[in-house]
């Protein structure tokens, strides 16, 4: 399989279109006959990441790279960054607003769900500036 890379813009506070990148990639992976369990993990991580950008970040980018041995998701935004990453990784910790909670978000499970579903996850954040989350998913041999 040759490598395939696609990127999608994510707009801050655009709750109407939030999730479209993840659903598009989910459909693409289905067409490529990727293992459904793997597709589910990629979709969940992508969606949680997209929602994090829409709720907390500035505008951002969702990129997926599909290789023969792995799928790599990279979700980045233009701030405001995460001051305490270990704290943000704790189940239940949330900085969501009441508005986010009314829409069913802000359970403090976004990053923990991503960590649970990705085979590898790396977060880089500069408070006041940007955040980048990179997740890898390995194809079954």
């Amino acid at each position: 399989m040759s490598s395939l890379k696609k990127c999608f813009n994510i707009r801050s506070r655009d709750f109407i279109h939030a999730g479209e990148a993840s659903i598009t990639v989910q459909q693409l992976l289905k067409q490529m006959c990727i293992d459904p369990a793997l597709i589910r993990r990629v979709a969940i991580c992508g969606y949680e990441g997209e929602m994090n950008v829409v709720m907390h970040g500035g505008d951002g980018l969702y990129c997926v790279e599909i290789n023969s041995d792995r799928i790599v998701l990279e979700i980045s935004d233009q701030g405001p960054g995460i001051p305490d990453i270990p704290k943000a990784m704790e189940k239940g910790f949330s900085t969501a607003s009441d508005e986010h909670r009314e829409m069913g978000f802000g359970a403090g499970m976004g990053l923990p769900n991503m960590d649970k579903n990705a085979d590898e996850m790396f977060i880089e954040s500069v408070p006041g500036s940007r955040t980048r989350v990179r997740m890898s998913f390995f194809m079954e041999k």
Binding site: G19, I23, Q26, A43, M51, G104, F105
Partner: peptide, 15 residues
């Protein structure tokens, strides 16, 4: 009890 568009998107993502 949530009727937003995200309830449906979440359902699509999780199967």
């Amino acid at each position: 009890g949530l009727t937003t568009i995200q309830a449906v998107k979440t359902a699509v993502i999780s199967g």
